[in-house]
């Protein structure tokens, strides 16, 4: 009984129908959060005492990096569920998450470089945090490449899931790199167990941006998954029906 909802969740058709209701809500909430966060963070939050205005790139850099890491775990867990329960939908979610994660990692690297020039005095240097983040980008790109290299969908799904699972090693390394080794990058500002070292007037817009990025991530992931569902299921009756009714 308890597994019934789980099996239903694995049905691409059920997901496609349900998610068409979620989509506008996710879009509206993420736009609202992101616009409020950007205007508040860039326009109204105070300057930083040391860095002046250049610290404001934190409002993009931190949410992008956070979602790049969290998105990797989501991708790995979807891959594991796909392998264990042979669930079609979770492989599709895994595939859909890869390019989004790659884009977020790239955004975190670029904003970090732009932030590094005015504060550290260099765009790039090979400290543990920056290097491990670059490895994450290559992992994402490798997973995208692997998913397209094998022509048999089922084999490609399994291979990608295994590569993704092996790559999870990198996530705690990225997160802890600034504590384990000496680095150019400063340690984490937002901490789970102790108070964060950012003034509340700068923290609230950052929190809005993080929540906004989470909603935006959910939105793009759902949209991408829906496209992959249509691509893979286009021969089935329910997709053909949608096509004839022009409801896509």
């Amino acid at each position: 009984m308890a597994w019934q909802w789980f099996n239903r969740l694995g049905s691409p058709r059920w997901f496609y129908q349900k998610s068409s209701v979620w989509m506008p809500w996710l879009a509206a909430i993420s736009l609202l959060l992101l616009i409020t966060g950007v205007v508040w963070g860039l326009g109204f939050a105070p300057q930083d005492a040391r860095q002046g205005n250049s610290y404001r790139i934190i409002y993009i850099h931190v949410p992008a990096a956070l979602l790049a890491l969290a998105g990797y775990y989501l991708m790995a867990i979807s891959g594991a569920i796909g392998l264990i329960w042979k669930m079609k939908l979770s492989f599709l979610v895994m595939r859909a998450a890869a390019p989004i994660g790659a884009a977020l990692t790239f955004a975190a690297l670029v904003t970090g470089a732009l932030w590094g020039k005015p504060t550290w005095g260099t765009y790039w240097d090979w400290d543990a945090r920056i290097t491990s983040m670059l490895i994450l980008l290559f992992l994402y790109l490798g997973i995208i490449a692997l998913s397209r290299a094998l022509s048999r969908q089922h084999t490609a799904d399994k291979a990608c899931a295994l590569l993704t699972l092996v790559g999870t090693v990198n996530i705690p390394i990225i997160y802890k790199s600034v504590d384990w080794w000496s680095s150019l990058h400063q340690p984490a500002t937002l901490k789970l167990m102790e108070p964060s070292s950012i003034h509340p007037s700068m923290f609230y817009p950052l929190l809005l941006m993080i929540l906004g990025f989470y909603c935006f991530y959910a939105w793009t992931l759902t949209a991408h998954t829906r496209i992959l569902i249509l691509q893979r299921e286009w021969r089935t009756q329910w997709v053909q029906q949608l096509l004839t009714c022009n409801k896509i």
Binding site: P46, Q47, D48, A49, R50, Q51, Y55, I58, T119, W120, Q186, P187, A188, T189, S197, I198, H199, S201, M202
Partner: peptide, 8 residues
């Protein structure tokens, strides 16, 4: 720079 952010 350190990880603290404060208004002037």
């Amino acid at each position: 720079h350190d990880e603290t952010y404060t208004p002037p």
